[in-house]
Design a binder for these strands. Structure first.
Lengths: 341, 341
DNA sequence: ATCGAAATCCAAAGCGCTTTGAGTGTCTCA
DNA sequence: TGAGACACTCAAAGCGCTTTGGATTTCGAT
């Protein structure tokens, strides 16, 4: 069913039908209702491609999912972020276009979006400290929003981020308050901005209490279950082992816990643990009582915010284009007072 | 840069330029090279929307991601499946269109894809035993591939699935061989086809050894960490507790393990555990030695196969449209002989 | 020299929609 | 009664591409 067929059916011109459906004022309410009814009855919806061509707007947002060639990894938070963003897109009539590329080809994917003109905007993920995508995209001229920040970027850009520094500072302070002084940090890869900020928060809290951060207690790795486990085992086997561990992701924390228990130790008693929790839908932190003490911020909500911000930018509503979300610190059973001192 | 601009630049007609770029034989090799070079130099790529309108092909595949309204859950395997499918799409010049909708609106999302004509095909996930989407999509006339099967569907459809029955039958047999007779099953929701098949495999193995499946040992729930834990606790608190547990997902298994250890029991010694492992990239089963004994099948590869199959169907290459993948059974440290008998 | 096929290239139509600019009635007020 | 204002509606152009059906040139063969 095309517009022309529908208009023939109604004995109207395509113009009028189009205007009726798109809510233009030049058409009477009576015909509008008639047209809408007929469209509904015959299951008519405008052909996206033709409409996009005519209006110059693709009504689609692009997401580039880079796959690390080394580890064949998909960022686990991606599904929930996507879900959040997707809801907002649907609500606003936008489609979500996903491009899965190996991380070397990422820029090419952005360029391709721009030249093929099949999206009106982009969301980019996981920025590094000085992310080269930002100047690149500024040149490209396609609206975009960054999920996260890039501390050393000089050009302006729109972003939605969590206050990672504050979150890790508070988590560290909690552990200090519980009497822990040897606190390990199992962080994500620190060329990533979020990880650098988390480390800064951790170090700031220690320094403020007169403790010099010990490089032997700080680790930076991919945030997998296996890494969590593999880093924890040797760490806890030393004589002056830490009494508390700060972990950058739930998934990694699962591995840490596995390591703790393999050594016959008990989490929350022998070793305290605080983790960052992205509130992933399939991995909620316990059912009633949280298992892990955690700083939590919903990545799904971040997705909603980022999507809304991008749509605002595309529509030219220049509301503030930066949004800093706060994580909340929730007590679980994984922390307790230091018993070793 | 449009085709017209490029052709003006080259002193050729748009026709010739278009043909040169699309590899039609009516253009000399010399001009083809010249055109390609110019296109490259000026960063020209055909406008997707215009091309789609002209060719009648959207060069895009739709995925509908239903969000369970009740639990606000995103299927965790979705990210990896998507990654696999996305690779194949990219390689073949297809875009991936994602539509996130609450599960009540799912059909509407398919219909919208069909009427708006912005995709050439669909992939659908998580079919139930008698999935109503199959007749619905057959009517709709948009090519599609099902990830999974729908046992009670009468109409034919293309699918890619894992041999769930066989996988669970083999896993159960392994436990039986180890002397376990009271084997619990923590399954996914059994209106889902995959879960029903897994249960069938489990029951078949038991029955073949003369053991009547005990309803008190069979559970069907959402496959979250919390559910795994919450089901395990009371299960292992009974006097005639099972000595082995078969679990339908790694994530759930993590929760089961937590339950086991909270009770002071040791996995692999006091309780054996076998889990189904989708080989999720962020949740590999241990680094060197697998932690869990598991039946594994890569959901990412399933994504690749499904995407390829769909593209084949769209292109009219009618290769066989059904693909059954086998899961492999890998020994980890979570299983051991029954010590209780 | 001439013809026909092969090799190139092009003009123009068309994909299905939006939107501009104009046209036709109908109403209101002088 | 006539003129202007208003409410509707429409024809046609245009978005950027592909593709049909010709037109032109080249060249070996007659």
């Amino acid at each position: 069913m095309t517009l022309k067929e529908l208009s023939d059916l109604l004995g109207l011109s395509p113009t009028t039908v189009s205007r009726a459906l798109n809510g233009y004022p030049e058409v009477s309410e009576a015909t509008r209702i008639k047209v809408a009814a007929a469209a509904d009855a015959h299951g008519y919806a405008p052909n996206t491609r033709a409409r996009a061509l005519a209006t110059g707007r693709a009504m689609a947002i692009g997401h580039v999912i880079p796959i690390s060639a080394k580890h064949e990894m998909v960022n686990p938070i991606f599904a929930d972020f996507t879900a959040g963003a997707g809801e907002v897109y649907s609500r606003n009539g936008y489609d979500m276009l996903m491009s899965v590329v190996s991380d070397q080809n990422e820029k090419q994917a952005y360029r391709s979006f721009a030249t093929k003109r099949n999206v009106d905007g982009l969301i980019i993920h996981a920025p590094s400290l000085n992310d080269e995508r930002i100047p690149f995209l500024n040149d490209l001229g396609l609206p975009y929003v960054v999920h996260g920040r890039s501390s050393r970027a000089t050009a302006p850009y729109a972003w939605v981020d969590v206050n990672n520094t504050r979150a890790f500072r508070r988590a560290t302070e909690l552990l200090l308050d519980l009497g822990h002084t040897r606190i390990a940090l199992l962080n994500g890869l620190e060329h990533m901005d979020f990880a650098a900020r988390r480390r800064a928060g951790y170090e700031a809290a220690l320094t403020a209490r007169g403790i010099t951060p010990d490089p032997a207690l700080m680790f930076s790795a991919e945030m997998t279950e296996a890494q969590g486990h593999d880093l924890t085992r040797p760490l806890l086997a030393t004589s002056d082992r830490p009494t508390a561990i700060l972990v950058s992701s739930m998934i990694m924390a699962i591995g840490v816990r596995r390591g703790i228990e393999e050594l016959g130790l008990t989490m929350g008693r022998d070793v305290s643990l605080i983790t960052y929790d992205d509130d992933l839908s399939y991995f909620r932190n316990g059912s009633d009582i949280p298992v892990y003490t955690a700083t939590r911020s919903s990545v799904r909500q971040a997705g909603q915010h980022a999507a809304q911000l991008l749509i605002d930018i595309i529509n030219g509503n220049d509301s503030p284009s930066e949004l800093l979300l706060e994580a909340e610190l929730t007590l679980g059973t994984s922390t307790g007072p230091n018993r070793k001192s």
